[in-house]
Nucleic acid binder design. Structure first.
Lengths: 88, 88
DNA sequence: ATAATTTGACCATTATAATAGTCAATATAG
DNA sequence: CTATATTGACTATTATAATGGTCAAATTAT
C-alpha cells in the first residue's frame, strides 16, 4: 500500500483534462489562448505536462466553466480536514 | 444564476486549504518548506493567495498525502467530461 | 509577563514561466 | 489527393515566480 503518485504524472493528467475540455468545446489552442489573453505556448505547456502557474490553469478552468466545481471541492476538502481529528 | 467565481478567490481558498493541512500536521512554514526543498517565501505566497506554480502546489499536496485524492478527482472529472455529450 | 517561535512584508538576485515568433509534422476538411 | 488548420518543437526576449535574506508584528509557550 501507499502507492506513490508522481507529480509529473499528475501534471500530465491535468494537461489531458484541459485538452479534453478544450476539444469538447471545439476550440484550438490558439482560440483558447486568445480568449484567455495568454499565449498559445502557455496552453501548450499546460497540456503537455510542463510546469505552469496556477493563474494559467484557473483562467482555463474559468473559461471552461468548471471553476465553481473546483471551488466546491476545495471547500469540501477543507471542511473535511478541519473536522477530522488530527493524527499528527 | 451563473454565479461568477473569481480566480483570486480560488487562489485564496487553495492557500487556506494548504494552511489548514499544514497546521493540522503541526508544521511551521519553514519546516514544510525545508522538507519540500522549496523556499519559505514560496509556501507563504501560496498560502496568501499570490500566484505560484503547479509544481509548488503539487509538492505540498504530495507531502500532505492528498495527491492521490487529487488524481482520483482528475480521472473522474475527465471521464465525466468524455462521457457527457457535447453541448458546444 | 516575557521569552521563543512563527508569520507577513519587505528587498535584491536568480531561475524559469510567459511571450512572440518560426517551421515541420499531423490532423482535418474540401 | 490537395489544401487548410492545428499542433509540437524549437529560439530569443521579457515578465515574474523562486530564492535567501532581514525585521517588526503577531502568535504561542513558559
Amino acid at each position: 500500500m501507499f502507492e506513490t503518485v508522481e507529480i509529473k504524472e499528475v501534471k500530465s493528467e491535468i494537461g489531458a483534462l484541459v485538452k479534453a475540455l478544450r476539444k469538447q468545446r471545439g476550440h484550438s489552442q490558439s482560440q483558447l489562448a486568445k480568449s484567455l489573453g495568454v499565449s498559445r505556448t502557455s496552453i501548450q505547456n499546460l497540456e503537455l505536462g510542463k510546469n505552469f502557474t496556477i493563474d494559467t490553469l484557473l483562467k482555463v478552468l474559468k473559461e471552461m466553466q468548471v471553476l465553481e466545481q473546483l471551488q466546491g471541492e476545495l471547500i469540501r476538502t477543507k471542511a473535511h480536514v478541519l473536522n477530522s481529528k488530527s493524527l499528527y
